[in-house]
């Protein structure tokens, strides 16, 4: 039982990763693909933050000058702050492309279809 609890966060990470990944590859709607991508990325955030947790620790902010308290690991948190920013930047750019695709084609799914004709043999 304890073993399951200990790895629960990682299993949820796997599940969320796969739900997002499924949306990215199986859905044809471009906005849905981007939503899938966001779920996918958020799952990775969970992986990093989970590995940074220390039992009995607190957030890595020193209160009242107590530098010797047990702190959770600050490094994964820093990395994920950066990754969140990267995620929103990708989302914004992706949405801008979707808006242009809508303007150019009049639809936001199945835009790939005309390309298939001239694809490789």
């Amino acid at each position: 039982m304890n073993h399951i609890l200990n790895l629960f966060n990682y299993w949820v990470f796997v599940l969320l990763l796969m739900i997002g990944f499924y949306a990215v590859i199986a859905r044809d709607n471009l906005v849905k693909k981007l939503l899938g991508l966001s779920i996918f990325q958020a799952a990775v955030f969970l992986l990093f933050i989970s590995m940074g947790k220390v039992s009995g620790g607190t957030a890595p902010i020193v209160l009242d000058g107590d530098w010797d308290a047990i702190f959770s690991n600050p490094l994964p948190q820093v990395l994920i702050l950066t990754a969140i920013v990267v995620g929103i930047s990708t989302l914004a750019l992706g949405l801008a492309i979707v808006v242009r695709i809508k303007e150019a084609y009049g639809r936001i799914s199945d835009v790939d279809a005309p390309e298939r004709r001239s694809g490789p043999p």
């Binding site: 958020a42 933050i49 989970s50 607190t58 969140i84 920013v85 989302l91 809508k102």
Partner: peptide, 29 residues
């Protein structure tokens, strides 16, 4: 999980800003 900085950012960005962007994009698509 002891990550208040990340929580604050995820709430402001994930729940706030990206929702607004997605909705604005939807109104155009």
């Amino acid at each position: 999980l002891d990550a208040p900085d990340v929580a604050l950012t995820e709430a402001a960005v994930g729940a706030g800003i990206s929702t607004v962007l997605l909705l604005s994009a939807l109104s155009l698509t």
